[in-house]
């Protein structure tokens, strides 16, 4: 086991353990904060796969943005602690439904994992992709860059419109 594998399993363990805490924690605030470590672990995996820009985007957007939204969402809800799982027949139905869906997803993913044709190649020693991304984004894909601004503008105006409907 070389250094690469050790680091991979380290990040994978962070992702799996914190994701388990997200699902199993009774306190929704603990779930939200545990999601922070899941996102960080995924960012680490991206960096490990030579995708440093995707990694930094993961930290900027998910840790810096989406998680803030989730925590604000938790803060404006009524019941933060002690959300009860439903008892009785409807609770059992929920468990059964969730179990079946999880099992089917797991089987599907396992089949894909076993039967899929994996493209393997030697890892070329790329140092940082962000320089190439910067050059390409500003030359070949400059129209897409400006289109992204318009997309963001639409999202922003839509959010402002929905958020301030009464005004």
């Amino acid at each position: 086991m070389d250094l690469f594998e050790i680091i991979f399993y380290f990040f994978a363990a962070i992702v799996l353990v914190s994701a388990l805490v997200v699902v199993l924690s009774k306190n929704i605030m603990y779930s939200a904060f545990s999601l922070l470590f899941t996102f960080f672990g995924v960012a680490g995996l991206f960096v490990l796969l030579n995708a440093d820009f995707v990694g930094i985007t993961q930290i900027m957007v998910y840790v810096g943005g989406i998680l803030v939204l989730i925590i604000f969402g938790v803060m404006i809800t009524t019941k933060v602690t002690g959300v009860d799982i439903k008892e009785g027949i409807s609770g059992k139905l929920q468990y059964a439904g969730a179990g079946i869906i999880t099992l089917l997803t797991a089987i599907f993913l396992s089949l894909m994992f076993i039967n899929g044709k994996w493209i393997t190649g030697s890892s070329t020693d790329v140092h940082a992709t962000i320089h190439q991304i910067g050059t390409l984004l500003m030359t070949k894909y400059i129209l897409a860059f400006e289109a992204a601004a318009i997309l963001l503008l639409i999202a922003f105006i839509g959010a402002a419109l929905i958020g301030r409907r009464k005004a």
Partner: peptide, 19 residues
């Protein structure tokens, strides 16, 4: 929500800023 939009804007500016 407004913050998110400008957060993503910064992500787009990163590759340009480096080059």
């Amino acid at each position: 929500v407004s913050f998110i939009v400008f957060d993503i804007e910064v992500v787009f500016l990163y590759p340009w800023a480096i080059q």
